[in-house]
């Protein structure tokens, strides 16, 4: 397909760039349901770039296509590297097809609300709480979005790149009583 673009000239192709779709039938069926998601394989692994508002719909489609399990949900912080700072990363697993799929959804720092996928996969519960705790992403529709790893009264979201790297003093108020 890339060869065709060069032969036919780039002007027409620039207006309507041909959308690359995965070869794998199941992944192709998911990709064809949405016009906005982009096929972006990385080091031989299957990845979709998804707009953040579509996350739940794409996950729902993947769930119906046979991805039974959400194995991982995490966030990457591209501080000062990209315009939309965060990226939500969801790893799905299909046991019946022996297939993995990763969804990556850029999230800008001024709008950190993302649809929760807990209604589809109950296993996303802890992962979304962790993402909220350490990165400050807000998951709309999560049943119990509270801090999970840090104490409740903690300030800030520690895994953000602008959070300090080194140690902080003991926050516990009884610590000065050491004799």
């Amino acid at each position: 397909m890339a060869g065709d673009q060069i032969v036919e000239g780039s002007e027409e192709q620039a207006e309507t760039p041909a959308r690359t779709l995965p070869d794998q039938a199941i992944l192709r069926s998911i990709a064809e349901q949405f016009t906005d998601i982009e096929w972006a394989p990385s080091t031989g692994q299957d990845v979709f770039m998804v707009p953040k508002d579509l996350v739940r719909d794409v996950v729902q489609a993947a769930s119906e296509a046979g991805f039974e399990m959400l194995v991982d949900l995490t966030v990457t912080d591209y501080f000062r590297r990209r315009s939309s700072r965060f990226e939500l990363v969801i790893n799905l697993l299909s046991i019946q097809h022996e297939l993995r799929l990763r969804l990556r959804a850029p999230v800008p720092v001024d709008d950190v609300r993302v649809p929760s996928v807990v209604p589809i996969y109950s296993g996303a519960n802890f992962y979304e709480r962790e993402a909220f705790d350490l990165f400050g992403l807000i998951f709309d529709g999560h049943p119990d979005l509270t801090r999970i790893l840090m104490p409740d009264e903690w300030d800030g979201h520690p895994l953000r790149k602008d959070y300090g790297m080194s140690s902080v003093p003991v926050q516990f108020k009884g610590s000065h009583q050491v004799k």
């Binding site: 194995v71 991982d72 995490t74 990457t76 591209y78 990363v89 790893n91 109950s122 296993g123 802890f126």
Partner: peptide, 24 residues
């Protein structure tokens, strides 16, 4: 899950740990 920006340190190092999910 590792993300590299081309440097000598990871931009993001995330481990998907089994006990975390199993505990749910």
């Amino acid at each position: 899950y590792l993300v590299s920006d081309g440097g000598s340190r990871p931009l993001r190092m995330h481990m998907r740990t089994p006990s975390f999910a199993n505990l749910q």
